[in-house]
């Protein structure tokens, strides 16, 4: 088993943990961390799978750099909204929805 595959396998575990976290955790900060875990998992798989021949492929590396910037932006957005929600409602959890 090559190092690339170890990265990819770790990525699969991180992604699954992240998805479960986003679905299960009520505290918004934890949920944002879980989302980041999910992203990191996908990035590890993208890099790890691509270099299974042992050669470095610059294309997925560039894609991951782009993906990291996008996920930084998404995280910043989530944090900004969470802070605003906390300021307005005093809570770090989403209010329950009314079914209307």
């Amino acid at each position: 088993m090559s190092t690339g595959l170890i990265f990819a396998g770790t990525g699969a575990i991180l992604f699954a943990m992240g998805v479960a976290g986003v679905m299960l955790l009520a505290h918004l900060l934890r949920r944002i961390l879980a989302f980041n875990l999910m992203g990191s998992g996908a990035f590890l798989i993208l890099i790890g799978l691509a270099q299974r021949a042992g050669l470095v492929d610059p294309v997925p590396q560039a894609m991951v750099l782009t993906g990291i910037v996008v996920s930084v932006a998404a995280t910043a957005l989530a944090l900004a909204l969470t802070r605003r929600l906390h300021k307005l409602t005093g809570a770090y959890t989403l209010p329950a929805t009314r079914d209307d």
Partner: peptide, 11 residues
């Protein structure tokens, strides 16, 4: 995120 993981597997 699910879409991105799919893209990683396709690549």
């Amino acid at each position: 995120g699910m879409y991105l993981l799919g893209v990683a597997l396709i690549y």
